[in-house]
Design a protein around this nucleic acid. Structure first.
Lengths: 340, 340
DNA sequence: ACACTGTGATGACACGTGTCAGTGACGCGT
DNA sequence: ACGCGTCACTGACACGTGTCATCACAGTGT
């Protein structure tokens, strides 16, 4: 049995040494040619020979070896929410990914498996990312930020309810959503406000501060807030609607537009008039809300465009001298429609 | 000015050499202790000293160096769709991430920036991922798969319209969606079927095969299919609805549930009776569809649970001997509701 | 006194790359 | 013939880790 001539059968990918041997030059030359190093001058014929050899062998550089030698990476670490995040954040995430890739970063999703704070930071630091963009799922401490920076991170950005010492924090207080909702409902004369809390695990991160915002806005006004558990399925919504009249409420803030749609349908099916008997309010300002009848009042959040955040990363990587400036970006305002 | 005693001020993170020096042992011992290598026996006091030294210095291993030495990684590469993928796939993606992280893989999102086929494969191979799960955005060739495998990938999985030589392919033919929709509409007696094609860039990957499915199903039956461009915003939907009667259609397959909702609302606002005058059909079987009035007929796709796919990856990584078996998983069937 | 055994730890190499200092060849002016 | 500068290229080191073969040493049996 003769070996098949297919050279690419089972062999591992070649290294730059193999390329050098085939081209009849040194490995250093290969490196210079393939990286277009401008400080060293290589003759055109040699360049061609190297390129052809690399092509023929199917050479692929080894990213780990490269960044080990270089001492830094182009990795941006993006802790993955292990929560059923809504469409608004989903889109934001996608946009951020795409923008970072356009800037030639490698995006790594790294869920923190129940680790907390400093443990997570240590796990993240193993990859020596050049930047970390944390979305508040994990509350980084100043020590965690310091560790990441010492491990080579030029930019540590957090988006969350409070700012983090040493990091560039985009403060995005979900309580503002609740506050905007409550204020709007009270302006419309509602005083007995239900607050839907999703029973799906993981969403407390958003739902609890939103509830707190409601409470804060009504405190001292005589209005009251009533927490209501609900899952994102029809049965749960129907069950809640069935006991609606007993609850004696004239408004409900339904966590987000999706829960609002679900609950509003259940209420209508149960004969509860919206908005006559009960006002319904969502959050996230999805297009969908405009299509419902009645159209859905909601709270719009000022999320920065993913491109903006990607540019921020890029700027911080280029000029890490910048002292951690903190932007309080995330405003929230009510968008009144027919359902309230 | 004396230096601050805060040792963690500006210093880079220590290496295992530093830990060894502080603990008064060799670097080899440090490696053995911190990796719990069972083949070598280290006394308990030494173990403690090493662990304490590592803790005190805040030692963090260098992932790149580690995997360079080890010759393999735990990276699963997941090419990012740079397209506004619908909520169904979004959820699937999240689930897959989470499941892979639970199996201790590092998930890397790597958008292919307009690269095609083999170019993308080469870019991916630089990371030496242990597995690649491609969702059909890029059509891998047999050569690309071979390159990835030679670079150390134990598992290459594709989800797409056709199977890929050498890869473990989950065939998911979007045409089936169109076929199921058309059959259902024809059963209900509709013969003049509109087909909404999103004008957003990138969605052709899904919309074109779905259209092809429609055409295939109606061919020879005397029914006809009419492509209709539309964007995902109210103006575009209203414009389409305004000229609806001129189109002389008695049914429309609206690409997916979201476009269907948008179009159905526009049709109703324009005075077109649904389903009396025109049947409307979506796809993806979102919960939302049940909540509309009339409730939305749709096409349900049998996506495998993310956990299933993660387990498949894990199995292939453990036993790469398995010959690439190809599953044709993705069935599609109509879910009749009131709108058709 | 000597061989043997098991324990606990170590020196040295390899992984694949980027880059600095250095080297030989060659042309040119004196 | 000699010095000098430029060009094109190379040898060797470093990055941080895992692991194999080896070694010092104490304990034990003859």
């Amino acid at each position: 049995m003769s070996q098949t001539p297919k050279k690419s059968a089972e062999q591992p990918v070649p290294t730059s040494t193999d390329v050098a041997r085939l081209a009849g030059v040194s490995r250093a030359t290969v490196s210079y040619v393939l990286n277009n190093t401008s400080a060293v001058r290589i003759s055109e014929p040699t360049r061609r020979r190297v390129r052809e050899a690399a092509e023929e062998l199917g050479y692929v550089p080894h990213a780990a070896a490269r960044s080990l030698r270089a001492g830094h990476t182009r990795i941006v670490l993006l802790p993955t929410a292990h929560i059923p995040v809504g469409p608004l954040y989903g889109q934001f995430f996608n946009e951020l990914h795409w923008a970072l890739r356009n800037l030639d970063y490698t995006v790594v999703q790294y869920g923190s498996l129940g680790l907390s704070g400093d443990e997570a930071a240590r796990a993240w630091a193993e990859l020596r990312p050049v930047a970390v963009v944390s979305l508040g799922e994990i509350t980084l401490t100043a020590r965690g930020v310091s560790l990441l920076k010492r491990s080579g991170a030029k930019a540590v950005i957090t988006m969350g309810p409070q700012r983090v010492e040493g990091a560039h924090s985009l403060v995005m207080d979900q309580r503002e959503v609740g506050i905007a909702a409550a204020r709007h409902l009270m302006e419309r004369g509602r005083r007995r406000i239900g607050a839907v809390l999703p029973e799906e695990p993981g969403l407390e991160l958003f739902s609890k501060p939103r509830l707190a915002g409601l409470r804060k806005a009504v405190s001292g006004t005589g209005a009251r807030v009533e927490p209501l558990g609900m899952r994102y399925d029809e049965e749960s919504a129907a069950a809640l609607a069935a006991r609606w009249r007993d609850l004696d409420l004239d408004a409900v803030f339904a966590y987000n537009d999706e829960y609002a749609q679900l609950l509003m349908r259940a209420l209508q099916d149960a004969g509860v008039d919206v908005p006559g008997e009960t006002a319904v309010m969502g959050a996230d300002d999805l297009l969908m809300g405009k299509l419902l009848r009645p159209s859905l009042s909601t709270v719009h959040m000022e999320l920065p465009p993913g491109r903006f955040l990607a540019d921020l990363v890029d700027r911080l990587v280029a000029h890490p001298a910048d002292r951690a400036e903190n932007h309080d970006l995330m405003g929230a305002h009510a968008v009144p429609r027919e359902s309230s």
